[in-house]
Simulated scan of single mutants.
Amino acid sequence: MTTAVSILAATAAGALLLGCSASVEVKKSTPPKLSADKLSSTLSEKLAAATNQPKPRVSCPEDLVGKVGTTTRCKLTANDGSTLGVTVKVTSVSGNRIHYDFKADDKASPAPN
């Protein structure tokens, strides 16, 4: 097992075991939105903290709208190109603060050939 796949496995296990959640204050808008870039960096920080690993590369395709039940899928990419999906779901909104849960997929996808 490569180091990158080991890190992905550790990240997935850590995220699954902890039932991770986060909240982020955003600029005032109706409904509030968390930019894709800020969501990516926040997830990277939370996953690193949960697994005691270096920050992984995380990319999210869209802003997260602060509406309960809204979901998005982000992607964690290891140095070898293998990937792991991360599902993000808004659990509550308090003013300009978006609270969400996130969960990494059980299995990583291998790097493309």
Rank of each mutant, 00 (worst) to 15 (best):
K75M: 15
A4P: 03
T70K: 09
L43N: 00
D37T: 10
V26G: 05
N52C: 08
P56G: 08
S35Q: 13
V24I: 13
R57Q: 13
K27M: 08
K107F: 15
L18P: 02
G14F: 05
V24D: 04
A4Y: 03
A104F: 00
D105H: 05
M1E: 12
A49C: 07
T51P: 00
D106N: 11
T87G: 08
V88Y: 04
A10V: 13
T11R: 10
T42K: 04
K28L: 09
I98P: 02
A15R: 00
C20F: 01
N113P: 12
L18S: 05
T42W: 01
S29R: 11
K46S: 00
P112S: 08
T51L: 02
Q53R: 06
T42N: 05
A36G: 10
S82G: 14
D63I: 05
N96L: 06
V86A: 05
L17N: 14
G14R: 02
G69K: 09
S40A: 13
P61G: 12
R97M: 01
A15V: 11
G85F: 03
S44Q: 09
I7Y: 08
V88A: 06
S35G: 09
T83C: 08
A12I: 07
C20S: 15
P31V: 10
K89L: 08
E62K: 13
N79T: 11
K38W: 06
D37E: 15
S23E: 08
T42G: 01
A78N: 02
